[in-house]
């Protein structure tokens, strides 16, 4: 399934500066695996050594934070918008 992935500023060195790239996969896990094939090394910045989403990064499929849904198993139907965003604080 073709999806689009928004890339945060600090990872754009992997995407030649592109803020948005296209991806592919039926789940978030597959999309991130494919992303790492297209942009080698980027996957290790989003996932830690054990394969979990790093604790200071938030990933959204559409409007939903995937920690509210099925995490890496969250489905990514065609046309999904995926956003990778560093956690920030303050209120």
């Amino acid at each position: 399934m073709s999806v689009s992935v928004r890339i945060p500023t600090i990872l754009r060195t992997y995407t030649s500066g592109a803020a948005e790239v296209s991806g592919d996969g039926g789940t978030l896990r597959e999309v991130l695996q494919k992303l790492d094939v297209d942009y080698p090394g980027i996957g290790g910045r989003i996932l830690d050594e054990t394969g979990k989403i790093r604790r200071f990064v938030n990933v959204y499929v559409g409007e939903e934070d995937v920690r509210f849904t099925e995490g890496l198993d969250t489905p990514t139907p065609g046309g999904s918008q995926i956003s990778v965003i560093p956690a920030v604080a303050g209120g």
Binding site: P8, I10, L11, R45, R54, F56, P86, A87, V88, A89
Partner: peptide, 21 residues
């Protein structure tokens, strides 16, 4: 705060190595 990587003082907030604050 996570991995100790140092950066020059600037308007940045997340580590480009690990996303740590």
């Amino acid at each position: 705060r996570e991995c100790g990587t140092l950066y020059d003082l600037g308007p940045i907030f997340a580590c480009s190595e690990c996303f740590g604050p």
